[in-house]
Amino acid sequence: MASGVKPRVKVPKKAAAGETITIKTLISHKMESGQRKDDDGNIIPRSIINRFTADFNGQNVIDVTLEPAISTNPYFQFEAVVPETGEFKFTWYDDDGSVYDTSKKITVN
């Protein structure tokens, strides 16, 4: 597992039913592109997060395939509809097989 990986997600705590909310996600990850060389001229092997998904109560919101051209600490902002009270689940998949996830609850009044 790459060291120091910490997901951060911003989701409002409350929403009206059917309301559109904006979600911001960021995960600390070096996203080594596989293009860089170290001081001795050896290529530093690629090590990136290759997939990110966001789901709400088991239904998909967005599914992103990442390539090495995504910056260090991958950031995404997108919009989702909230039909009912529930939980957003965010999952990041690392090249080395690690999976990082975090969840956020949202209440519909």
């Binding site: 559109t20 998909n60 919101v61 967005i62 599914d63 051209a69 995504i70 997108f78 039909p83």
Partner: peptide
């Protein structure tokens, strides 16, 4: 290639 975004049923926009 940079990235591919697939939108699910609960995506608002």
């Amino acid at each position: 290639n940079v990235a591919t975004f697939k939108f699910g049923p609960l995506s608002a926009s």
